[in-house]
């Protein structure tokens, strides 16, 4: 049945709602090959129709069906790639500018370039759009470190060592990204 592989590709992506599965190069290639095969078969049949004249059975309906399958496979491929990039964009807001290693491994080589573009986008006009995603209540907040992170340099030059379970009283805009990444926890 045509379009089964394209369907499998789309189904795999839809199962992973909030993360990215590894780029399925094999399945993508299989779908591309199916498209090529269908197009070749169509060319052959179209040729046959014009060659043999009106004696041969009309291949028009066959060609129509194969063409529909080509369009379907193309749609599956486009949707697969498009939705992966959309997912990358959401990840920029959720993970910050650094992707965890195992997610980065799931990107194909062609996807790292869009990632660079996306990373460049959220600091436009000197305003960092990624801070204050919730209305702020105070300038300074208390945080607790959840894992050993190392040194954090603040805007005024001072350096703070973030060790597991240490508590700090820091300016909100500096530690917001680390809280969203799960390194620090905001204590009220």
């Amino acid at each position: 049945m045509f379009g089964e592989k394209g369907y499998a590709l789309v189904k795999e992506l839809s199962r992973y709602e909030d993360s990215l599965p590894p780029y399925n190069t094999d399945l993508v290639n299989e779908v591309s090959n199916e498209i090529k095969l269908l197009i070749d078969q169509n060319k052959e049949d179209a040729q046959m129709t014009t060659d043999e004249g009106s004696g041969a059975p009309s291949m028009v309906s066959t060609i129509r069906i194969r063409h529909a399958a080509v369009k379907r496979n193309l749609r599956c491929l486009m949707a697969y790639h498009y939705n992966r990039i959309r997912c990358l964009r959401t990840m920029r807001w959720e993970f910050g500018s650094i992707l965890p290693v195992d997610i980065r491994a799931n990107l194909s080589s062609a996807e790292s370039e869009p990632w660079q573009l996306i990373c460049g986008q959220s600091v436009t006009g000197g305003v960092n759009l990624a801070v204050d995603l919730k209305p702020p209540k105070a300038l300074y907040i208390e945080v607790r470190c959840l894992a050993d992170y190392g040194n954090l340099e603040l805007n005024d030059g001072s350096v703070i060592l973030l060790k597991k379970d240490s508590r700090h009283y820091l300016p909100r805009n500096e530690c917001e990204e680390l809280i969203r990444q799960g390194v620090l926890r905001h204590i009220v």
């Binding site: 909030d18 209305p135 905001h186």
Partner: peptide
């Protein structure tokens, strides 16, 4: 229930850690 707007870890981050 709560009285403060806590900043929270992003949903994707939490799910990612759970999966790991």
């Amino acid at each position: 229930v709560e009285s403060g707007a806590t900043i929270e870890a992003a949903n994707m981050v939490i799910n990612h850690k759970k999966r790991k």
